[in-house]
């Protein structure tokens, strides 16, 4: 591969990501919930309510969990709903006839999720620091940002699986059905320790729970399970979800279903 073709391929990745980002940024139905909801939730529950307690623990705990929540949104919706809708509209099919590498398309969505996630967590961090007096060691701020952003991997894998197995508007509904209960049951809004034991067991099956525990580990507010356990569960779940997604695409194609006889329109 010559330098020119390398530069050319690199440019595809950059532009695909750029326009993916611009595209969803200009889509109020996507941008407002994913950018503002975690910030508003954190402002209300973490800063306004949490700051009334003597301890700064509640705002600090929620700083970590709402950040995970904030990264989960763009990852799930970008892949789950976004991918299903782009497949339905045929854009994905059209792009697959061009020299665009499939990876550019997928990585663009991951990059978009990271960009949105970074914006959300920066907002949450600033709210927590200046609104609720959250104080962390510098390495903790950076590590927290890093670990939380690494959550795009399992969440994008989950979104990809949802997107592969659902279509259009249905994908939005399914994504919401995954998103909100998982956030709740994983302790992203309130610590799961207040839940009944059975629900706490459910949390152990959810990637968001393990992601949140890893984030809480940085500020030493996790439940005390092993780091390796969380990383292993997330790794296995991500691979399993990617396999589920791959199977879904193989079954449905990238949009070719619309070419069945009688399906043309």
């Amino acid at each position: 591969m010559t330098a020119a073709t390398r530069a050319h391929r690199w440019r595809i990745y950059v532009l695909e990501a750029r326009y993916q980002f611009l595209m969803v940024l200009r889509e109020p139905a996507f941008a407002i919930p994913t950018l503002l909801f975690p910030l508003i939730f954190y402002l209300f529950f973490g800063v306004v309510l949490g700051a009334r307690s003597f301890s700064a623990a509640a705002p600090t705990y929620m700083l970590a969990t709402y950040s995970v929540f904030g990264v989960m949104g763009p990852s799930l919706f970008g892949f789950g709903a976004g991918l299903a809708m782009e497949r339905d509209s045929g854009v994905l099919l059209l792009k697959r006839t061009t020299p665009m590498p499939a990876a550019a398309y997928l990585l663009a969505k991951v990059a978009m999720a990271i960009a949105f996630g970074a914006a959300v967590i920066l907002g949450i961090f600033l709210l927590g620091a200046h609104g609720a007096g959250v104080v962390l060691y510098r390495w903790q701020w950076f590590a927290l940002a890093g670990v939380v952003l690494a959550g795009v991997i399992p969440f994008c894998a989950l979104g990809l699986a949802v997107g592969a197995w659902s279509r259009g508007r249905g994908a939005v509904a399914i994504t919401n059905l995954v998103f909100l209960p998982m956030a709740m049951l994983s302790g992203l809004w309130i610590p799961i320790t207040i839940f009944p034991a059975a629900l706490q067991d459910v949390a152990n099956a959810l990637p968001a729970y393990h992601q949140a525990q890893l984030a809480l580990k940085i500020i030493d507010m996790d439940g005390g399970q092993a780091t390796l356990l969380h990383v292993a569960v997330l790794g296995v779940q991500s691979l399993a979800l990617l396999a589920v997604a791959a199977f879904g695409f193989r079954r449905a194609g990238t949009g070719a279903v619309s070419m069945r006889p009688g399906g043309t329109s």
Binding site: L15, L22, M23, R26, E86, S89, V91, L93
Partner: peptide, 20 residues
């Protein structure tokens, strides 16, 4: 197909496809 994403401009779509 029903089209390319609504929220990008014509020149942005062209810019992206040209890059391919």
């Amino acid at each position: 197909i029903s089209g390319v994403p609504d929220t990008l401009t014509v020149s942005e779509h062209i810019d992206l496809f040209r890059a391919y």
